[in-house]
């Protein structure tokens, strides 16, 4: 699945890094606790969250997460978008709630972390 597929499935607005919509995404993680996200590592992941502060982008940066989806129609501040642009992290915003957004992606084949 590509970031563009996610954007279409969840009817997202793209807030930055549109040029990277063609990137492949292999798994997803949905959480408002960044500490929990930091316990989860995999390549080419997408993070779904309702948290809007710059630490969401920092967390994505440290973990090489390539796309953040803000749920419940939330739009982050310009400082957050700018930081994401600088780090090359695609920012999407969807009106879907967390549960529905995760459910739709899972149903379409995007799975969570496979425990080793």
């Amino acid at each position: 699945m590509t970031i563009k597929d996610i954007s279409t499935l969840l009817n997202c607005s793209v807030l930055c890094c549109e040029e990277r919509l063609g990137s492949d995404v292999h798994m997803a993680c949905g959480s408002d606790m960044m500490s929990d996200v930091l316990a989860f590592v995999k390549d080419q992941a997408v993070l779904l969250t309702g948290l809007l502060n710059p630490q969401v982008v920092r967390t994505a940066e440290m973990m090489d997460i390539i796309c953040i989806v803000f749920v419940r129609g939330k739009t982050p501040g310009q400082d957050v978008v700018e930081l994401a642009r600088e780090k090359g992290v695609v920012i999407l915003s969807t009106k879907e709630r967390m549960y529905e957004a995760c459910g739709k992606l899972y149903e379409s084949g995007l799975k969570g972390r496979k425990e080793p």
Binding site: M33, S35, A39
Partner: peptide, 17 residues
């Protein structure tokens, strides 16, 4: 701090991990 997404008691265990 928890409202900012941290303070879940995972920081030190994650560092060790």
């Amino acid at each position: 701090i928890r409202a900012l997404g941290f303070g879940a008691g995972m920081g030190l265990p994650n560092m060790k991990k």
